[in-house]
Design a protein around this nucleic acid. Structure first.
Lengths: 136, 136
DNA sequence: CTGGATCCCAATAGATACTG
DNA sequence: CAGTATCTATTGGGATCCAG
């Protein structure tokens, strides 16, 4: 698995040690904004993540406590990935990054609506999304 | 130079195409929070960026309009890098990422103070930092 | 067949030594 | 001071494979 090594005491650098790799946050995004929850869902995203990278990052995210992996109720050969409270704490980060991107790249779909809301009221929108992820 | 290729229409993914690489944002941080402005300054940071990576990222950041490069006034063999308005627009992103990191990694120095301010008042602090970078 | 993981190998990132 | 050159390690695309 991808090893996370802390390069300095800086909190920004610390976050980048986890998420400065282009893929981890996209998986979080899929769970957070698209409601995706399993391997196949993640593979089908537009960015076309490779299967080995996906498997690797899922293990990393689980090991570091951002997500949990459980057997699906409908099918026992299937796994369901869920955000932990630590994962949910990334909502403001995800949204701020997305908001920045939307200034240069016109947003589409649900993500776009959320970004517009965020523009109007960052605090309120962030809280709303987090509440929803916690299951009301 | 590192090529930026857009992997999808998602604004989050778009931002990650630029900054999902562990180094670019640290250079921005140095300029934004530490007041650093030249090659040697960046090299001296705790994360020990390699010289080729630094050179590469500076070109990338300049080519995409995040920073500008000028000859220093005091010494003509020296260059001074400055954030553009586009670079300054990254303040909220940098601070949100830093704030998240500071929840798990106790902050130190100037960055730490800023993070505490941010916790109290995100909007106000972000605006204050941006004003300062614009030279009042 | 479907979900999930592994393997191979090309491409890229990065550490270190060196240069104008 | 500000890079380039070289060499090694890591990443990641895509085929393949395994288990139910």
């Amino acid at each position: 698995m991808k090893e996370i090594k802390k390069r300095s005491e800086c909190p920004l650098s610390y976050t980048l040690d986890f998420f400065g790799d282009k893929w981890s946050l996209l998986i979080i995004r899929d769970m957070m904004l698209e409601g995706k929850s399993n391997y196949g869902d993640f593979l089908s995203s537009d960015e076309k993540i490779a299967t080995n990278i996906l498997a690797d990052r899922l293990i990393m995210l689980e090991n570091y406590g951002f997500i949990t992996k459980q057997v699906a109720e409908d099918k026992k050969s299937k796994f369901v990935y869920t955000l932990t409270e630590k994962g949910i704490s990334l909502v403001p980060v995800i949204m701020e990054i997305g908001l920045w991107g939307s200034q240069f790249n016109y947003p589409v779909g649900l993500t776009g609506e959320l970004m517009n809301d965020l523009k109007k009221d960052r605090e309120g929108t962030i809280g709303k999304v987090q509440e929803k992820l916690r299951g009301k």
